[in-house]
Nucleic acid binder design. Sequence first.
DNA 1: ATTATAACCGAACATCTGTTCTATGTCAAG
DNA 2: CTTGACATAGAACAGATGTTCGGTTATAAT
Lengths: 227, 227
Amino acid sequence: MKNNGGQEPKERKLAMLRFIDRYRREHGMSPTVREIGEHLGLLSTSHCDYYLRKLEEEGLIERQPKRARTIRLTEAGLQAIGGVAQESAPVPAMDERVAVPFLGYIVASEPLPVEPLVGDETIEINPALLGTVDDGLFALRVRGHSMIDALIGDGDLVLFRHQERVENGEMAAVWIVDRQETTLKRIYWEGERVRLQPANPTMAPIYEEADNIRIQGKVVLVVRRLD
Amino acid sequence: MKNNGGQEPKERKLAMLRFIDRYRREHGMSPTVREIGEHLGLLSTSHCDYYLRKLEEEGLIERQPKRARTIRLTEAGLQAIGGVAQESAPVPAMDERVAVPFLGYIVASEPLPVEPLVGDETIEINPALLGTVDDGLFALRVRGHSMIDALIGDGDLVLFRHQERVENGEMAAVWIVDRQETTLKRIYWEGERVRLQPANPTMAPIYEEADNIRIQGKVVLVVRRLD
DNA sequence: ATTATAACCGAACATCTGTTCTATGTCAAG
DNA sequence: CTTGACATAGAACAGATGTTCGGTTATAAT
């Protein structure tokens, strides 16, 4: 059955992508299979599903099986639209934001007592700034000057990704267990010992037993406001 | 039946509003009645519906009857979240994003020819990171190391606010007229002359006639990705 | 004590929504 | 001509989802 309603499959797929994208932006939710089909002049939900499957296989959309209104464009899908609609600036899809918990402050000098990492304040960050969509992010604002040579200054907002292991030389938020304190340093593993290295020549490194620290997260983004 | 699960009705309504808002931002779609109820510890969808009706009567949410996943906050609902949660920074509404034109690269070393500031690529920035909502922003990615002591490194994304005048010591994108070149430097006004000062001890300042430069914009935000 | 109200529950119901199944029609290749 | 691939329709199905209904419980007021 090759009566394409006047459209080539490729064009129809793009029209479908565009409809989904626009619908989401205009309605704040995804369209249903029936709504998509109606707009494209398809008389059967299964026909619509046929094309949605193809788009999904091609990685241009994603949907949650068996749940209502979950269709959304992937990054590739957005680019597919952008590639054809050159005359309009790419408009980010609705969900292109990451809510990052803001947990307070981290001292980039001497370790100081910091409340357990808990908070309900969030900061919205565009994933494009992160280069990737990450789970397990949290944000801390820096106090102090011990990471100045790493271009992290007092008052900077730093985003961390939760992970319990970092490579030598990577910067991380470190919880020192027996001190009940958290600090931001560059980490170097030295056998049973860990060197917590400031990036500031006037400051001495701190040494701790590897068993006595907990890596809270690795630095992935630094934001500084100057105005 | 006044067992409120430890929450006053007003507080529970706010918790509900917050959950809906956060869910939409994190998942790009609205929660179901069951999801809302689960999060609030309500054991029955009808109980959840009871509160949703109230919120709807109060104009804090809107939903499309009988359709799946259509619950959303109204403007009043968003304000209700922001208005009560004084102890936490206001969370920008979903559409509060500033589309900042990304105009390419700026050289933080020797001035080099740079195309006129034009481009159609944009980067979405949360105004909360800026501290203010500004018109006339543009973004440039840094090339070079001449601003290293100002904690601006190679590859950093820098946001500028269009302005034609900066104070001594402020950092700005500067267009040098007779060279037809743009550079990022710290600016110092010295009578008829301007000193374009690198923040790198290995580099000499550049002097230009004040008439020969045009301030393109002042640095207001620096973003660095490390991962 | 009674009464009224708000809050809460669980079951049932209606419909929405996505998905599967079966069948047909068209086209191209052999 | 046959075969296979692609596109299309409609019906049916399963489960998701919102809503209604009938009831209970706790509290405050009288």
